[in-house]
Design a protein around this nucleic acid. Structure first.
Lengths: 344, 344
DNA sequence: TTGTACGCGTTATCAC
DNA sequence: GTGATAACGCGTACAA
C-alpha cells in the first residue's frame, strides 16, 4: 500500500529550502514590518510551492487564541437559526474564524454542557441564543465572562447579564402586529403566549397589551393564553379555546408554529380564515407561505442578526468593544398576508 | 478593573502541587497501565481540584489529531441536514469529537473552499453530502483521501469515489412510491425529476421507470420532466404542464418542495387533490404535514443516517475500517397521506 | 512505577 | 533585517 501520507509542510521546511531561519519565515508570513520585501516575496513563493498552510494548533498553542467561535442555539431544525448562522459564517470565515456549533435542545442542562465543552475547546468567544430557562445558567454566563471569554447574546438573551445583545424590538413588532389586526377590524383578539420563562414571551405580550390598551380594547384574563412554542401547542390550545365557547375573531400567536397549529384546528372546526378568525404569527418561517391561507408574520432580519452578532464578538475579542452599544436593535417587518386581511 | 483571567491549570500545575513529574500526571490522566493506582487517584483528585482541562491544541500538536470532524452539507435551512447532524453530534460528541460545519450552498466551488478549509484546520475526517455537481470535485476527494484524511459520503454521494457511503435505496423507495400510486388507481403518472447532475435524480427516476414498466404503464418523453429541487421549480413546471393540456392524474416529485410547489399551482388552477390529481414527495419534510392535503412522502431515517456516518468515520480514523462494508443502505419508509389516497 | 528530556509547529524575546 | 532560543502544554521514548 502506497501510504501517500505526505506530511504537511512547515515553516521549517521553508526555512531549510531557502537557507534562512524559521523566525524570518514566520515574520515574512505574518507580514511583519521588520522584513525585507525581497525575502518576504521569496518566502511567500516557497510557501506556495510547498503548499504550506500554517498549523492552527501550533499557532493557538503559542498565541492562546483558537480562532474559533463557539455557538449555542436551542435547535437547528426550524431554519430560523440556520439562517442566522449563515450570516455568522459569512462574517466569521471572512475574518479567518471558524464556528463550533452546538445545540441545547431547549434544555438548560445541555446548554450548560455545551458551554463547558466550548470553554474546554478554548473558543475565543461565544455566541448564544439561550434556552427558555436562561436564568438558570446566568451564573455560568457570568463565570465565563469573568474568565475572559466574551459572550454575545442574540435573539434570545439573558437580560440579567451585562454583555452585548443583538435583538429586534419584540414589543414594538408585537404591538404593530396587533395594531394591524385592530385596524383590519378585528376586535376580540386573543394572544397565544409563549413559554413563561422566555424573555421574548413577556416582550411580545407587552406589545399585545399595549396595542390593545392604546385602541381601547378590553383585556381580561381570557385574552392571553399560556401556550408553548410548537405546532401541537397551538393546535391544543385552539381546541380548548373553541370548546370553551369563546369566540375570538383573531389570534396573535407567539410564533409561526403556534399560529399554524391553531389554524389547523380552526379549519378542522369549520372556521374560515380570515372571515371567521384571523391569525398573525411571529418570526416568519417558510411554513408561513406554505400554509393556507398564507400567514401574516413578523419577519426578522436573520442573516443580518447573525452577521451583526459575529462582528460584535470579533470586536470584543479584538478589544474594540466600544464600537457597539451594549444592545443592538435591528429593524423587523410585518409581512401582511391573507390570514389577517379582512374581507369586506 | 479586576481582570479575573485565571490562567487554565496545566499538568505542570498538578505535577508541582503533587511533587511528581509531568509525565506521571500525563500517564495518570490518560489512564495508562504503567501507573500505580494510588498516584493515579491522587492526580485525578488534584486535577479536579484545580479544575484542570487538557489543552486540545497542545494534545493535537503532539498527537497530530484534532479530534475534530469536518462536515460539508449543501445547506442547513431545510431541516433535512440538521436532522442528520443531530445524529452525528450524538455519536461524535460521545466519542469526544467535535464537528466543524460548513455549507456549500449547492456550489461546487464553495464546497471546494470548504474542503480546503477543513483540511487546513486539520480535521481528522470529513463527512460530506455533495452538491449536485459532485463529479467536479472528484479529483479533490481523491486528493484528500490520498493525503490520509478519511471521507465518508452520506445522502448525496459521489459514486466514482472509493469511500464509505451511507444512503437509502432511492430506487427502491421511488419504485415503492410509484407502485403505491398505481395501486391506488392512478395511471397517468408524471415524474418531476431533480437536477440532472445529481445521482439521486437518476436513482429515483430509475425507480419511477421500473415501477411504471412493471405495471405495464406507458412511458414516453412527457412522463418525466426536468424540474429542479425547490418549491418554485415545482410550481413553475406544474403550470407549464397544465397549460400544455397534459392531464396527468398523479405526480411523483423528486422531493417535497417540488411536490408542494406543484400542489400549490394545481390548487390555483382549481384541481382538487387527490381527486383530480395525486401527489407524492420524497425525503419527508415538516412541510409535508403542514400543506393541505397532507403530502405522502418517503421518510428517511435521518438521525440514524447521521449516526451511522459518524460511526463509520470514527472507525476509519481508528483503523477499524473493516467493520463496515463500503456502502451502508438504511431502511426508509413510505408514509401515505391524503395527497395520494384515491377517494372512491 | 516514576522521572528526564525531547519534540510537535509556531510566535516572541532577545541578541547580533 | 535576521538568527538563535525559549516558550506554549502535552505525549512519549528512554533512562532510572
Amino acid at each position: 500500500m502506497p501510504e501517500t501520507t505526505k506530511k504537511h509542510a512547515t515553516i521549517k521546511d521553508i526555512a531549510k529550502k531557502l537557507g534562512v531561519s524559521t523566525s524570518t519565515v514566520s515574520r515574512a508570513l505574518s507580514d511583519s514590518w521588520e522584513i525585507k520585501k525581497e525575502t518576504r516575496d521569496l518566502v511567500l513563493k516557497a510557501a506556495a510551492e510547498l503548499n504550506y498552510h500554517p498549523n492552527p494548533m501550533a499557532i493557538g498553542l503559542v498565541t492562546k487564541k483558537s480562532h474559533t467561535i463557539g455557538l449555542c442555539v436551542p435547535e437547528l431544525v426550524h431554519s430560523f437559526f440556520p439562517k442566522i448562522i449563515t450570516g455568522m459564517q459569512r462574517a466569521l470565515s471572512e475574518a479567518g474564524y471558524t464556528i463550533l456549533i452546538t445545540t441545547s435542545d431547549e434544555s438548560y442542562e445541555t446548554e450548560r454542557k455545551n458551554l463547558l465543552l466550548l470553554k474546554q475547546n478554548l473558543v475565543d468567544g461565544i455566541l448564544i441564543s439561550t434556552t427558555s430557562e436562561s436564568h438558570r445558567n446566568a451564573a455560568l454566563y457570568d463565570e465565563i465572562l469573568g474568565s475572559g471569554t466574551p459572550i454575545v447574546f442574540f435573539n434570545r438573551v439573558c437580560s440579567k447579564i451585562n454583555a452585548p445583545k443583538v435583538i429586534i424590538d419584540d414589543t414594538k413588532m408585537a404591538h404593530m402586529a396587533v395594531e394591524h389586526l385592530i385596524r383590519q377590524g378585528y376586535g376580540k383578539i386573543v394572544h397565544m403566549a409563549g413559554p413563561r420563562d422566555l424573555d421574548l414571551t413577556k416582550l411580545r405580550m407587552e406589545g399585545f397589551l399595549s396595542a390593545m390598551k392604546e385602541f381601547g380594547r378590553t383585556v381580561d384574563e381570557s385574552s392571553v393564553i399560556d401556550t408553548g412554542m410548537f405546532i401541537d401547542d397551538g393546535a391544543r390550545e385552539m381546541e380548548k379555546l373553541i370548546r370553551s365557547g369563546a369566540k375570538p375573531d383573531a389570534i396573535f400567536a407567539f410564533n409561526d408554529p403556534v399560529a399554524i397549529g391553531a389554524m389547523k384546528t380552526a379549519k378542522k372546526f369549520g372556521l374560515e380564515i380570515p372571515r371567521d378568525i384571523a391569525f398573525v404569527g411571529f418570526s416568519e418561517s417558510k411554513s408561513a407561505l406554505i400554509v393556507e391561507p398564507a400567514l401574516t408574520s413578523v419577519a426578522q432580519p436573520l442573516s443580518q442578526m447573525g452577521e451583526v452578532a459575529a462582528k460584535c464578538i470579533l470586536d470584543k475579542i479584538n478589544g474594540r468593544a466600544e464600537t457597539y452599544p451594549a444592545t443592538v436593535v435591528l429593524e423587523a417587518a410585518l409581512n401582511v398576508r391573507e390570514s389577517s386581511v379582512r374581507i369586506r
